[in-house]
């Protein structure tokens, strides 16, 4: 699992610009599936046929990540940027960022180094320095509309792993391991590595419409309530197993699917947690309201410090997610 995770963490893919990570995943899962394709919004769709007459289950993990997009270049060569996906700019000040072609830069802000008096900076204050002195120099390296994300870094402490893009590459790694391990599943797996989740669950919406699955399972990270004075107050901890989502702001899990997953955990003596998230949303929301409605649920990976450069998960939870999904597709 750690190796798979490392491979998908190392490649960038800001929303709308997922082709590099799509290519990496395509190479990793290609040998294990019967069909693999991309669509106009950048989704990567890998299909593994199940037994005849079995249900088609869409497994969705989004491969896009939050980042910056260049909106202007000033005459001294600094890049003005805005956010792709939602995050607090403070979390990324002083960080190294990487553009799609590997170019690196550093993030700073127009606000004084100790921060403005009210402690908040806005995206309008943020700029990226790529070591140039003129607009022409920068224009030779970067075009308006290019995207950058915080540079890859990995910390492994036992089973705890921290990196900038656990949301949602941890889930991509889970899906890759599922595809590798499901030799001959009973249900047909439509694994969609979705695009543009962070900007409004767009990839899942169009791929669910196109693929028309019978059921959908989104795999995504959720917040952990086990850090000091964590808000929101949530009963989800790292290392205590997959969190089966009851509801969040974008979807309420279809009751029979939620209960089926819980039953697999209980029958198999596997760890699991029940999750109610007072905000946020996953691809399950888009799948559920596609066409005339598709039953959908989310399996969450507990994750600390979501949308920061140190998103942290427990490898044991990832392994348990793989087991749970295999249990479902082999039913």
């Amino acid at each position: 699992m750690l190796n798979t995770l490392k491979q998908v963490l190392a490649v960038s893919g800001v929303s709308g610009n997922e082709h590099n990570i799509a290519k990496t995943i395509e190479e990793m899962v290609g040998p294990y599936v019967s069909t693999i394709k991309t669509d106009a919004l950048g989704n990567l769709i890998a299909i593994k046929e199940g037994k005849a007459g079995g249900k088609r289950v869409m497994l969705a993990a989004h491969m896009d990540q939050i980042g910056f997009v260049v909106t202007d270049i000033n005459d001294k060569g600094f890049l003005y940027v805005t956010n792709v996906g939602g995050f607090a700019p403070e979390a990324f000040l002083g960080k190294v960022v990487t553009f799609t072609d590997g170019l690196q830069g550093v993030v700073s802000s127009k606000a004084p180094s100790r921060g403005p008096a009210d402690g908040k900076i806005t995206m309008e204050d943020v700029y990226i320095d790529i070591g140039t002195s003129t607009r022409a120099e920068s224009e030779a390296k970067v075009k308006l509309g290019d995207t950058a994300c915080v540079a890859h870094q990995l910390v492994v402490n036992g089973t705890r792993v921290s990196a900038p893009t656990m949301d949602d590459r941890a889930a991509c790694a889970v899906l890759i391991e599922v595809l590798k391990a499901a030799a001959k599943p009973n249900k047909t797996i439509v694994a969609v590595f979705t695009s543009q989740e962070e900007v409004g669950i767009r990839g899942a919406a169009v791929s669910a419409f196109a693929e028309q699955p019978d059921e959908g399972i989104a795999v995504d990270v959720t917040l952990a309530g086990d850090t000091p004075d964590a808000k929101p107050r949530m009963a989800v901890s790292l290392g205590k197993g997959p969190a089966i989502k009851i509801m969040d702001r974008a979807s309420i899990s279809t009751p029979y699917l939620r209960d089926a997953l819980i039953k697999i955990c209980e029958d198999g003596g596997m760890a699991y947690q029940r999750e109610v998230l007072p905000f946020g949303g996953t691809d399950a929301g888009a799948i559920q309201r596609s066409r005339a409605g598709i039953p959908a649920v989310t399996i969450s990976i507990p994750c600390r410090y979501v949308h920061s450069p140190v998103e942290t998960v427990d490898l044991a939870d990832l392994d348990d997610c793989v087991k749970l999904i295999l249990g479902y597709v082999n039913q």
């Binding site: 559920q288 309201r289 596609s290 066409r291 005339a292 409605g293």
Partner: peptide, 10 residues
Amino acid sequence: GFGAMTAAYG
């Protein structure tokens, strides 16, 4: 409005 959205589609 998700129920009406999908029901109307169906």
